[in-house]
Design a protein around this nucleic acid. Structure first.
Lengths: 372, 372
DNA sequence: CATAGCGTGGAAAACGTTTGCTCCTTTCAC
DNA sequence: GTGAAAGGAGCAAACGTTTTCCACGCTATG
């Protein structure tokens, strides 16, 4: 039994020196053998590996990081794990990390400035090799703490005003235009929009995209209600919409949770979806597929987002990013048709509805990232 | 501007020796001041802190861990982040970690033995102070690797066959009995059960609890269909149930995703919930509140689970666990009434339905854990 | 006034790696 | 046969902390 074999060593210091001693080589050679670096006589290497296996030796990462100056940790700062937008991102990010022999230090800010500061502090204290920031409202001074230590940084959607930092821009316009056109093709003319908290850049951008798309198509972008990107806001929004003089026949929401709130409120009020009201979401979180009916929504691929973020970090840290332009990435959004949209209550389609659009793609797909 | 002030130091080695030098004390004193350990002259301490703030010094955690022998990291191994059961757990766990000045090393196994091995390897390599294991099918030999290094371990629901390891037992019986009795009170006599993958201990335990509860109440526990704990399995299960000779009027599911699958299939088949069919889930994931109608389900509090796990780890590592019994914890389950259950199609209630049951509680609530 | 005792600061030894440098051995070419 | 070149192994110095041990000075006490 394995355990018994170990038991005999159990009190001894199981470090690389012990390995070297037993393999009758120097620690330098043992280290080189273990890391398969430089050339070491196959004979010796085999001896080292044998001892490593026998003793169940695991190198001490902190010592290694200390001397090598690289921790092989990427930080990932999100706002809240319970936000359904993140699980897929975190999972993809971790998969990539594992494939590239990195670890992730995951922290959440729960929208608390103090927690945000703690997050940054942790990142620095652990000397992470890079940080992906997927939360909003990072204070300038915190940022500087990281920049000062020249920690590679990737932001999502902060806009072009921060320089020298990799930035993933989201193309909201594309998906939202598709959504509006889709609804128009279904003869909807009174289309409402439930916005998110407008102090968030992303929420504001979505609203602007809605307005632009409506104008583009010749409809008035007037029916706008403000929600909170949560279920409750969606429910309230539909109540508010019900009070309007001109009742809309379709609702476009700033995110999926809002849309689910709208559907939930509709369910309570016996409003039939999609017969009486068409609903479109934004994000395409997992849950969107499971609602009843399944939600037509604008997909912002969380997988792709995670892939870009990781790749960007990897580029920085491996020093592959030389040109200035490489710091800008873009993620496009696309409409995903499901069953929450249908013909406007009193109408008939003039054109065939647009065909189903594939998953979003991003530029700068790398071939060096392993795993999925 | 802050940045400019830093700029002047930007090339220098900002370590504790630099701090000591500038504060004109020894590194020993600097360390003691920073860690507020032992007594150091307030005058000197103030000088040290002043320099720390000015330079924006952050201690190097790896060096600290190396010499102190404690990493202040807890490992958390889950199966998949995208499993809706985990977000709440991870969030709570992290909140507690932050409050107690710990970090978490989060890994997922995606049910891949290789990934599981990698997870364990990472935990050991980072010299974590403890590991909470929330995934199933951990191989015995991997376990021994951890035990050999006497890493404190907390398991969820492995049963009593592993000794010397903290273990959180789930009381499935309590909640499931409540669910069955609730349905019976609503005049349901034909109650079906959609089981999970029976090679999982937890799924098997739930099924056993169902059988026992049915027998207890004088009903035959015969209508059992096997699902997969995922949406698809639930959908398939309802189809299968539809083919049975004796059509059940209520379905109890082994987890919430299954229940949502059942509801989804019912939606497609125009079966009305709860009018035609009552549905009960298990777990009480976030989404259960958002389905249409909201799902009546057995709550297994993810928050409490995370709290227990964290507290158990803390007990181990702070050396507070002396008695043998302390290694066993229990989490009870309780029915949460929502709107997916109603009177059986052709019946009238004989008794008043049971009153709403509060959130689950666990033994050994600690008062030493800070934050939430 | 001398001495014991205590509290405080500093020098230096860890912690477990990687890695620059040196030295030795071997090989190969002339 | 001699020289240089190449390649592989080992010594020892880092990396940035904590912590042990010791010395010093101050206070209180006999």
């Amino acid at each position: 039994m394995l355990w018994l074999r170990w038991a005999s060593y159990s009190q001894e210091p199981m470090d690389i020196r012990e390995i070297a001693r037993r393999a009758k080589v120097s620690t330098a050679t043992a280290s080189r053998a273990i890391n398969r670096v430089s050339t070491v006589d196959p004979q010796l290497a085999k001896r080292v590996w044998k001892v490593v296996d026998e003793l169940g030796y695991y190198p001490n990462t902190q010592a290694r990081a200390l001397v090598s100056g690289r921790s092989r940790i990427f930080g990932l700062i999100v706002s809240e794990f319970t936000n359904p937008f993140f699980p897929e991102i975190v999972q993809t990010f971790e998969n990539l990390a594992v494939g590239n022999n990195y670890e992730i230090l995951l922290t959440s800010t729960v929208n608390d400035p103090r927690r945000m500061e703690l997050s940054v502090r942790r990142m620095i204290e652990r000397r992470v090799d890079g940080v992906a920031i997927l939360t909003f409202g990072m204070e300038e001074t915190l940022l500087e703490h990281l920049r000062f230590r020249s920690v590679p940084l990737v932001f999502v959607d902060v806009g072009p005003d921060v320089r020298g930092i990799a930035n993933i821009r989201i193309n909201y316009q594309n998906g939202i235009r598709q959504a509006v056109q889709h609804l128009a093709a279904l003869r909807h003319t009174r289309i409402a929009f439930v916005a998110g908290p407008l102090h968030l850049k992303s929420a504001l951008a979505r609203q602007e995209a809605f307005k632009a798309s409506m104008i583009e198509i010749g409809l008035p972008p007037e029916l706008i209600v403000v929600g909170d990107h949560r279920l409750e806001g969606g429910m309230r929004a539909l109540i508010e919409i019900g009070r309007l003089n001109t009742r809309p026949t379709a609702v476009l929401c700033s995110n999926d949770m809002t849309a689910i709130g709208v559907m939930r409120q509709a369910y309570d009020q016996k409003i039939k979806i999609p017969d009486d009201l068409s609903v479109v979401g934004f994000d395409d979180i997992r849950m969107a597929e499971f609602t009843m009916p399944p939600l037509t929504t604008v997909q912002m691929s969380q997988k792709d987002l995670a892939k870009i973020a990781f790749q960007a970090l990897l580029n920085e840290v491996e020093g592959r990013s030389t040109s200035h332009e490489r710091h800008e990435y873009e993620l496009t959004t696309n409409l995903v048709l499901r069953l929450s949209t249908a013909l406007a209550p009193a109408g008939r389609p003039s054109t065939t509805p647009p065909k189903r659009v594939g998953a979003s793609r991003f530029r700068k797909v790398s071939t060096t990232v392993q795993s999925d």
